[in-house]
Computed example of a mutant assay.
Amino acid sequence: MNTLPIKALICSMIITLAALPVQAADMEFIGTAKTENGDILYQEKHRVSGSCQEGVFRPQGHKIGYHRPEAAETFASKSLTYPDSVIRPTVEFLQPDFSESLSIQYPSPDTLTIEWQDPDGELKSYDVGYNQDVVVDGGFDTLVRQHWGALTNGESVEFRFLAPTRGEHYAFILEPAESTRVVSDHVLQIRPTGMVLRFLVEPIILGYNSGGALTDYYGLTNIRKNLDTNHTAHIRYAVAKYPDCALTP
């Protein structure tokens, strides 16, 4: 029996499968930020474009519009892209009410640049070295999903988190937690590990459902309360559209 035609067919099938395009996918969700008293501060409208790779969703672009209650117009906006890493997106953030803007880019494989115009109108620029442990902005969400099995089994993950307005990244830990404020299938917290920061920075509490979607965020936000401080809020998320693949491995 001549097996060459069969082998040729198998090779052809493998080549064809490898050449198939990655399936496009997107996700939409809304977050409602409230004060301790339950007053609504604002809403976040999220649209994430991405692809399904090996059955798991990979974000590629993420746009966020911030709306005051019952207002159609945005008062702030953020755009993230994930060209090289799902935990280190580029960032473009605008908060016109305070004349504030923030941009994070990656001109080289080991250096990121930050340009921040603060509410006083001063433009500050930083060049920051980084390694593969550094997480930027919304990349924390993908970090959770990358380590979903470990976190949901009670383990913790150490990483470094970028503080863009300081031009530096600091050691943090992501771990399971208990909270009276957040009720969800899985409750996690992000807290600094350095002695000084532990006294200065409150942990961020996160809630996730069993499918790996963010349900809650409790902590300091990137939306300004005034010239000196940002809002601390409890943001509850509702998914309007899931991608056509799993969020976690």
Rank of each mutant, 00 (worst) to 15 (best):
R181H: 00
T152W: 11
E100D: 12
L9I: 12
S85K: 11
I10N: 10
Q43C: 04
E175N: 10
Y218M: 05
G38R: 11
H234K: 08
P96F: 02
L80N: 04
V196T: 07
V201W: 01
L94E: 11
R198Y: 13
H186C: 08
D26S: 09
Q132D: 15
Y130N: 08
D120V: 15
T113A: 01
K225L: 14
G154T: 08
D110A: 15
R181A: 11
P164Y: 04
M195H: 13
T81H: 02
M195L: 13
E175T: 00
D39T: 12
D39A: 14
K63P: 03
G149L: 06
I114R: 01
T3I: 11
V187N: 00
P107D: 01
T113S: 06
E178M: 08
M195D: 14
P5V: 03
V201S: 04
D133S: 09
P249L: 06
E44Q: 07
S85Y: 05
T111R: 10
I173Y: 00
Y66H: 06
D228M: 05
S125Q: 12
P21I: 15
C52R: 02
V183S: 11
R198C: 05
P69G: 03
L247H: 01
A246P: 10
A72K: 13
C245L: 03
D133G: 07
K124L: 12
L227R: 07
S99Q: 15
V144S: 02
K34E: 07
G154A: 01
M195N: 07
S156K: 08
V157A: 03
V135W: 02
E92H: 08
F75M: 07
L197C: 06
T81M: 10
I204V: 03
T90M: 00
A233Q: 06
M27V: 10
V157C: 02
V136R: 13
T16W: 15
R47V: 08
A71Y: 15
T229D: 14
T221N: 02
M195P: 03
G139M: 01
R236K: 14
S108L: 06
A72Y: 12
I205D: 01
D185A: 01
G65D: 04
A177S: 03
N226P: 09
G50W: 04
T16A: 11
T221W: 01
Y42A: 05
F75P: 14
T3M: 13
G212Q: 05
E100V: 12
G149I: 02
T229V: 14
E178I: 09
Q95K: 10
A71T: 13
L17W: 10
Y218K: 04
Q60R: 14
L80Y: 01
G207W: 00
A163S: 08
I40A: 08
M13P: 02
S125R: 13
P21V: 15
S125M: 14
T152G: 05
I40T: 13
S101F: 07
D120G: 14
T232R: 10
R47E: 08
G154Y: 09
Y106L: 07
N131D: 15
H169C: 06
G212P: 01
I30P: 01
L102W: 04
V187E: 00
